[in-house]
Amino acid sequence: MDETGKELVLALYDYQEKSPREVTMKKGDILTLLNSTNKDSWKVEVKITVNGKTYERQGFVPAAYVKKL
C-alpha cells in the first residue's frame, strides 16, 4: 500500500496499450490498483513524467501482467 492506503501492483512485463481504455507500463513499474474485480484486466493508475511534470492516467492492464504488493 502507498502512503494514502491504496493498494499497489508491480508490473511483471512490459505492456503497450491497445486501446484508449488501457495504459502502457514497463516491467518494474509500480502502479496504484483501483479495481481488481475482473479476473482478466485490472484498472490501475499510472504516473507519467513529461518534461519534469507528473501526470496521472487511469486505464486497464492484463491482470496476469501485474502482481499485488
Rank of each mutant, 00 (worst) to 15 (best):
Q58T: 11
Y15I: 01
S19M: 06
D2P: 13
G52Y: 02
N51F: 06
K39C: 12
T24S: 15
W42G: 00
V66L: 15
G52Q: 04
D29N: 04
N35E: 14
K39H: 11
P62N: 05
T37C: 14
V44E: 00
D14Q: 02
K6H: 13
D2V: 14
L33E: 00
T32E: 06
T32C: 10
L33H: 00
L12N: 02
N38P: 03
Y65W: 06
V66N: 01
S36I: 05
K18D: 06
G59I: 06
M25E: 00
G59E: 01
V9M: 04
A11T: 05
P20L: 08
S19E: 08
G52C: 06
M1E: 13
K6Y: 14
A63H: 02
I48G: 05
A11R: 02
E3M: 13
Q16Y: 14
D2L: 14
F60L: 06
K39N: 10
N38I: 05
Y65A: 14
L69K: 00
E7C: 15
Y13A: 11
L12I: 09
P20R: 08
Q58N: 06
A63T: 05
P20D: 12
L69Y: 07
D29A: 06
G5S: 12
D2W: 13
K18H: 07
L8A: 05
K68G: 04
G59Y: 05
S41N: 11
L31H: 03
A11H: 03
S19A: 07
T54E: 10
S36V: 05
S41M: 15
A63L: 02
L69M: 09
Y15R: 01
L10C: 13
K53E: 12
T4M: 13
A63Q: 04
K67V: 14
P20S: 10
V61G: 01
A11D: 01
L69H: 04
K18P: 04
N38H: 09
E22K: 04
Q16A: 12
L31E: 01
S41C: 15
E45Q: 13
L69I: 14
D29K: 02
E3H: 14
V61L: 03
E7I: 15
T24F: 03
G5T: 13
W42S: 00
E7S: 11
R21T: 13
G52S: 04
R57D: 01
T4E: 12
W42C: 04
T24Y: 03
K39G: 10
K43S: 06
N35D: 15
L33N: 01
K68I: 14
K26P: 01
E22V: 03
I30A: 01
D2M: 14
V9T: 00
E17N: 06
D14V: 04
S19G: 12
T32S: 07
R21F: 14
V66R: 01
I48S: 06
E45I: 14
L12C: 12
E17P: 15
T49P: 03
D40H: 13
E45H: 07
I30K: 04
Y65F: 13
G59K: 00
V50E: 10
G59T: 02
A11S: 05
L33F: 02
K26G: 03
Q58H: 07
S41E: 15
P20G: 09
D2Q: 14
Y15N: 00
E56P: 13
I48N: 05
K43I: 14
D14E: 03
S36M: 08
V44K: 00
L12V: 05
L10D: 00
E17T: 07
M25G: 01
T37P: 03
Y15G: 02
S36D: 15
K47W: 08
G5K: 14
S41T: 12
E7H: 11
I30T: 04
D29I: 05
V66E: 01
